[in-house]
Amino acid sequence: MAEQVIPAWKKWLEGIGEQGVFFTRFVRNIFAGGFEWSEFVRQCYEIGYKSLTLVGITSFIMGLVLILQLRPTMVDFGAESMLPRTLSIALIREIGPVITAIICAGKIASSIGAELGSMKVTEQIDAMEVSGANPVQYLVVTRIIATAFMVPLLTLIGDVIGLFGGYIAINLTDDISFYLYFQKCIASIEFVDFIPAFIKTIFFGFAIGFVGCYKGYNSNKGTESVGIAANSAVVTASLWIFVIDAIAVQVTNLLYY
């Protein structure tokens, strides 16, 4: 038993050390000069724009379903008028950021992991390195910053679409004007609801980009390692999202309440 556990722990600790080294390389290359703007813009398009439909549909359904699930209970308490407020707080504070981040972990972390993993297998990263170019600056820095930049934006858009889904759901059984619904939603949100949620999405984005890049960049040389990198990137990024979320809640409570 100990013979199996000790090497596993050793490997885990080595992994933590390697991630620390990778993070240091990432930070050093941000300030190394020669930021790859064109690649950054391309990654923002790939990561942000191409995820918009998926995030939009998911957020719309989340808003719709939440209202449909909440309504019977709220009706029992005679609190139907609280539905826009309940939805907006739930969506802005927690559900919007976490659902968007989980969707992005599935789509973006896996795609970055697979892309860099495949570049590793086909020696493209080695070719970049051996040519004297800087693969970390070109491949890693651009992707991580683009993800940290686009996930908050996607979350904002997803929140608005989710609220719109809620508006549709309410109007399936009741009647509320578009103006009144959104007025109620916005009136119930304070900066203390929005700011911490927005800040944590930046960390979500960073975790998604970092894990995807780390898993892909450090994958082994073999075709199966591309699949392993993609899969492992999704699992690890999803786990990190919940860990960051738990920490963010504690920090928010300490600072604001």
């Binding site: 570049m119 020696e123 493209q124 070719a127 051996v130």
Partner: peptide
């Protein structure tokens, strides 16, 4: 130093 990889290693 120039290095030609077995596969060509073109950026695909």
């Amino acid at each position: 130093i120039g290095f030609l990889f077995q596969s060509g290693a073109l950026y695909d």
